[in-house]
Amino acid sequence: MASEAQFDAALDLLRRLSPLNVSSNLTAITSLVPDLTEDLLSSVDQPLSSARCKKTGRDYLLCDYNRDGDSYRSPWSNEFEPPLDDATFPSDRVRKMEVEANNAFDVYRQMYYEGGTGSVYLWDLDDGFAGVVLLKKSVAREAGWDSVHVFEVDERRGSGNGGGRTCHYKLTSTVILHLKSGGGGGGGGGDQELNLAGSMTRQVEADLVVESAGGQGKDGGHVCNAGRLIEDMEGKMRNMLQEVYFGKAKDVVGDLRSVAPLTGVNRDRQTQRDVISSMGGK
């Protein structure tokens, strides 16, 4: 078994390497220390990949939460590809919620992403259930957005009151963003390429009232509550990326590279110096 020190060192190393190569870096580390494979795959978020369901012909996203060995479960057919003899499936109740959640987030994906791929996977817990909502949007090879929302619903931790029963929800959201710009830069420097990549993780917990929704009653209410939490979290993370991270990157680029011609900048600086010197002579 790999030691805890090896696991911490591997995480520390991955944080310092380029986010663009997280998948290849993860493969390299696990090849050196195979005992870390399961722990790292469940702890490190990496860009999502997709596969096509052979039974329905629909695309679905792959992650550690729908993986069993080398097989992945399709949310559309509820079958593993390649097939497994001893696979673990969600209970009938949780599977019905999974189908409802996939339909709901398919609408969400079309509204917010105008394309892309989305998948929802649920599984049973002793005190309730848990799930993951995956959303991916790529623009050729120039940009990519991957969001992973893992949530847990503790049905025993809530309480009953006059307004209905409440349950405890815990959501951990990660966004992986990659932007690429390049080719034919000016200034005689030849082709120039800019890569901007990184990830952000945020967490929230809330006690929410579970109201009946749709034909599944309270279970439909769970889907609605999880959807509201994820929608609110994605909105906050998008705003933070736009205002904080992209705003700061824009300021840095603006300080490093002047948009105005260099001759004009020098002329303005000389005019400023002349004005200051003339004021000092009075």
Rank of each mutant, 00 (worst) to 15 (best):
T117L: 09
S147T: 15
G115M: 03
S147M: 09
V150R: 12
E211F: 14
D154E: 01
L171K: 00
Q203W: 10
G189R: 10
G183Y: 03
S212E: 15
V209Q: 09
S138V: 13
D124I: 00
D191C: 04
M97E: 13
G187P: 01
E98M: 12
S199V: 05
E205R: 00
V107Q: 11
V204L: 15
D146V: 07
G186H: 08
F151M: 00
V133S: 07
D124R: 00
G144L: 14
D146C: 11
G162W: 06
G115P: 02
A140I: 11
A206S: 15
I176N: 13
G118H: 08
V139S: 13
L125A: 08
G185K: 02
F105E: 07
D124N: 08
G214V: 06
R165A: 12
W123K: 08
A101P: 05
V133K: 06
R202I: 11
G158Y: 04
E205T: 14
K180P: 06
M97K: 09
S159P: 04
N103W: 10
G182V: 01
R156S: 11
E142L: 13
H168K: 09
I176M: 15
G186Q: 11
W145E: 05
A104G: 07
G186F: 10
Y112L: 11
G118L: 04
A213I: 15
G162R: 10
R156G: 08
G115K: 04
F129C: 05
V209W: 02
S159D: 07
G187I: 00
W123A: 08
K96I: 07
G187L: 02
A130F: 02
R157S: 10
G118C: 09
G115F: 03
E100S: 13
E114R: 10
K180I: 08
G183L: 03
E193Q: 08
R157D: 09
V132C: 07
T174D: 01
V210K: 01
S138H: 09
G131C: 02
Y169A: 00
S119N: 05
G158L: 03
G186W: 06
S181A: 14
Y121W: 04
H178C: 08
L177E: 07
S119K: 06
E211T: 15
S212V: 09
F129A: 06
A197G: 09
M111K: 11
R157W: 05
S173W: 01
T172Q: 12
Y108M: 11
L171R: 00
A206P: 03
E205L: 01
G198F: 00
G187M: 03
R93H: 12
F151E: 03
